[in-house]
Design a protein around this nucleic acid. Structure first.
Lengths: 356, 356
DNA sequence: GAGGCCTTCTTTACCGGTCAAGAGCCGCGT
DNA sequence: ACGCGGCTCTTGACCGGTAAAGAAGGCCTC
């Protein structure tokens, strides 16, 4: 059941049948009608996508790859916000979105073996083998929340500036002993987090942003990393900072998910927020305005990020298709401090041992 | 830069190079090594996915299609739970997940034009043209939350039984005037919802389940449909039921998302839950145990549903590949009533006009 | 020492389309 | 009456692989 089958049936050349489906203006309307109805009758649905992809050199799908487990794409509120915007933005172009797992093991590696027209590299370990495959395939790529590479279009947010604004905010509130809570799923958790040890571009940039302000101010810093994957982990990590006599009076968090863990840990320990503890998140995810107390955070516009990324990717694909030299843009979207209930003026520090 | 390039360079046949990449046991280790290093040197990444898809007849990706906007895949908590489980379950098989939009307009229709090995039909308008394309392509399919078709494997939950349990629960609590709140995004909203008018399999089954119990019990029913897409819509719909003198003392909701809207509307109207109003949801989504009051609901196991769907799909693909006759399974997963804070015994009905 | 089998590589024949250039026909302007 | 451009349709080449059967050599067996 191929084009040829229809062609023989109608008595035209294969090419004409192809045109009937793919380039309606290349043949007379009446013949086209005849061909389509013959196809209908024979149960021919349309040109085989795989064959078409080979001949045309394009597939109609783009990939998105991240180093985390695929599940992350559906559980993390920032990821869902972003990917949802991407998907919506891509829909009218007819492109479908394929979720690539970055499993380097196994004999099948999606980044190498799945046909696609281009890909988004999102929140990825940039030296991961999967990303390397994408490069070597010379696929049109767009980096999102990723260290910028001069040759590759990118969409980022002003992580560093936003983090600095958050730090400035707590300093202005009078806080001087400040906890920093990064995310991290690899390696040992615990105190001490340096820009070098930060996992991923955003972690690093946000930490740098905090330090930009806190360093010169001479604040006392207590940093740690924690996993935001599950609420249990998040709470556990927060304990590292709160369960100590010299606990910070303010905690800056890598994300709202982590900040949420801090809020819960604080509640369990009977620490009042913002009375005794100021908590600042990052992202302004949908939860941030729903939890009690509502979360002071740094907003990023996920919809705008999605739109920008989709636009950059379709542009890159278009340029690759036509062979035009691609102008490489590096977009940085603004962030904005949103002050809500979880931050307040520094109170007298609790006497050692009085916590809990 | 094709297999032939490498073949010429090394001085072997094209087929041997193909085997070096795809069937390592078909040639000597030393020659394979030689081929791979030559490929590396020439910058050849691996067999072209599109060409391989054509020759092999399989692509390494499966689709998932739903009638809603693609965004729905990332915003609805039930959808994200399910899709996350799917993606995770698919990862070890090496299959990637492609999100198909069901846009029938435009010249490119993913359901017809994207290459894939099989597809999940999830929560879809079953007479949608997109689903019809999938059928006609004779792709291995699995129906999820969909009316069963004898010829197509399906995974469903016991919607009707769960709904009946919820209805029984409110009856046992003494409620006799009961509101039914379905979901619906098409057509006019408003009172009156019949099984025929219900949109989609789940809606219909859940409504039937309620009626199974409420009908014989002679309860007074007030039904309506509302959109759960945004919290505003949800609240607005709930008003239809609550903003009336003879308002129900209990409301059964199609989903937790809708129930959440009812809770909010109740709070706005100063109606105490569960004191003056019992609210029962469906799905037991993550929110259900987080909101105050916590939501009495009917639990479905999304992870199990994802696992079952992924397994059914890979099985169907495998059968199609080998040409073996596919045993068509229809899986129905159990549901379970979870009683929390939002349901309580029926109180004396408010005197007409006293509401608000 | 001949036949059989395994390993390793090659040959031949597709997979199902699209691109680009060519050929027949028609109407039109002159 | 003729040349020319524009519509239609056809021709031939190519996209980059894989399946399956065949051929060459080596080892083992009896």
């Amino acid at each position: 059941m191929t084009l040829q089958t229809i062609a023989d049936q109608v008595g035209v050349s294969r090419m004409t049948v192809s045109n009937a489906f793919s380039k309606p203006d290349q043949l007379s309307a009446t013949l086209r009608e005849r061909i389509l109805s013959a196809a209908q009758e024979l149960g021919y649905v349309g040109p085989d996508p795989a064959a078409r992809a080979l001949a045309r050199g394009s597939t109609g799908a783009v990939g998105v790859i991240f180093t985390h487990s695929v599940r992350f794409a559906f559980t993390d509120l920032v990821a869902t916000g972003f990917l949802g915007a991407i998907a919506e933005e891509l829909a009218p172009t007819g492109l479908s979105l394929t979720l690539l797992t970055s499993s380097d093991d196994g004999d099948i590696v999606p980044a190498r073996d799945v046909a696609m027209d281009g890909a988004l590299v999102y929140s990825c370990d940039w030296k991961s083998q999967a990303v390397d495959f994408l490069h070597r395939r010379k696929l049109p790529l767009v980096y999102v929340d990723q260290d910028v590479d001069d040759d590759i279009p990118s969409v980022n947010i002003d992580d560093r500036g936003g983090a600095a604004a958050a730090a400035r905010h707590v300093l202005e509130l009078g806080h001087r002993r400040i906890g920093l809570l990064l995310s991290g799923t690899h390696g040992p958790y615990g105190l001490l987090a340096t820009p070098e040890a930060a996992e991923g571009h955003s972690s690093r940039q946000r930490l740098l942003g905090w330090l930009d302000e806190l360093g010169p101010a001479g604040a006392e810093l207590i940093s740690a990393r924690q996993d935001s994957a599950t609420p249990e982990h998040a709470r556990w990590g927060a304990r590292l900072l709160l369960d100590r006599p010299d606990r910070p009076t303010a905690v800056l968090c890598f994300s709202d998910a982590i900040a949420y863990g801090v809020l819960q840990a604080a509640a369990e320990l009977g620490i009042d927020v913002p009375g005794q503890l100021t908590v600042v998140g990052f992202d302004d995810n949908p939860l941030a305005s729903q939890v009690r107390p509502t979360l002071t955070t740094v907003r990023q516009d996920l919809a705008a990020k999605g739109r920008a990324a989709a636009a950059a990717l379709t542009a890159a694909i278009e340029h690759a298709r036509t062979g035009a030299p691609a102008p490489v843009e590096h977009i940085v979207l603004p962030t904005e401090l949103v002050i809500r209930e979880s931050s307040g003026p520094a109170a007298a520090p609790p006497r050692p041992g009085s916590a809990r």
